[in-house]
């Protein structure tokens, strides 16, 4: 007859915890507004909302509106095209903070975001001029609406500079899924994406964010206890003798049996 005898050694470690503030964040993208002061043909307003899911992940939702016009000249007398677009865009996804909770403290962020974006826009091209051997010709494209889809990878940083007021920037690495206009009339500018003639579009966003703590989470940053499980499967008679000997021989077990105190 066999008997399973388990000897469990428990070591209790000093517990170290922090109070991590979980936050909602409301903000806006500042560089679009700044650009408007010297580039009047581009207006971009973008709002930002995020909520901490835990100390590492936060869900994010971004909504924006763009109004953009662009005239491209070959030289001062030759207008190649005049492109106008306006529309709304939305992005949603998650941010992953790569800082450990003890370091980020809910105030600092160095991490990466993953987002899916959708853009609904209207565009028109009042003038397209083309010139070749046969001379100069002009055509136009009337106002047309479309939906575009893209994904985005956003490494970035953020820091709380005053109580509950943060600033930060993200680099946006955007990949087009579908421009919504077919392969021949890709958008010169796609709201929320940038240069729609490219399948990859890098961008940059500068955010000013107001944080609203909604909960404090207690985070254990060192494990409370560690268990060592030592199982032996031995004959009952042999076990009794051997366990008596071995338990007395093991310093850990000896301490546990005698003191029961954590170490």
């Amino acid at each position: 007859m066999c008997l399973v005898i388990s000897s469990i050694t428990t070591r209790t470690l000093a517990q170290d915890t922090i109070q991590f503030p979980m936050k909602f964040r409301l903000g806006f993208e500042a560089s679009g507004s700044a650009k408007y002061f010297y580039e009047k043909d581009r207006a971009n307003l973008e709002g930002y909302f995020s909520a901490d899911i835990n100390e590492k992940f936060s869900g994010i939702f971004i909504a924006g509106r763009s109004d953009y016009s662009y005239a491209r000249y070959r030289d001062s007398s030759f207008l190649m095209y005049d492109y106008r677009t306006k529309g709304f865009y939305f992005r949603t996804g998650i941010d992953v903070n790569l800082l450990k909770p003890a370091r980020s403290q809910g105030k600092y962020f160095i991490g990466i975001g993953f987002r899916y974006g959708i853009s609904h826009f209207t565009y028109e091209i009042p003038i397209i001029t083309h010139e070749n051997y046969w001379g100069r010709s002009q055509t136009s494209v009337s106002s047309t609406s479309a939906w575009a889809h893209f994904v985005e990878l956003t490494p970035g940083v953020r820091a709380e500079v005053f109580k509950n007021l943060s600033m930060g920037w993200t680099v946006s690495l955007r990949k087009m899924i579908d421009p919504g206009t077919g392969s021949d009339m890709k958008p010169v500018y796609l709201p929320g994406y940038g240069n729609g003639s490219k399948s990859f579009s890098p961008g940059f966003s500068y955010f000013i964010i107001w944080s609203i703590p909604f909960k404090t989470k207690r985070i254990i940053i060192q494990p409370k206890e560690e268990e060592e499980v030592d199982e032996t499967d031995q004959n009952q008679n042999q076990n009794q003798n051997q366990n008596q000997n071995s338990d007395m021989m093991r310093p850990g077990n000896f301490r546990q049996q005698n003191s029961g105190a954590p170490f």
Binding site: A34, R158, A159, P202
Partner: peptide
């Protein structure tokens, strides 16, 4: 916080100018 503010402003400004 001041150090973080300076780092973010400078690094962000470099990227912003480069994007134009």
């Amino acid at each position: 916080s001041l150090q973080a503010f300076v780092v973010i402003i400078i690094s962000g400004s470099c990227l912003f100018l480069n994007s134009c």
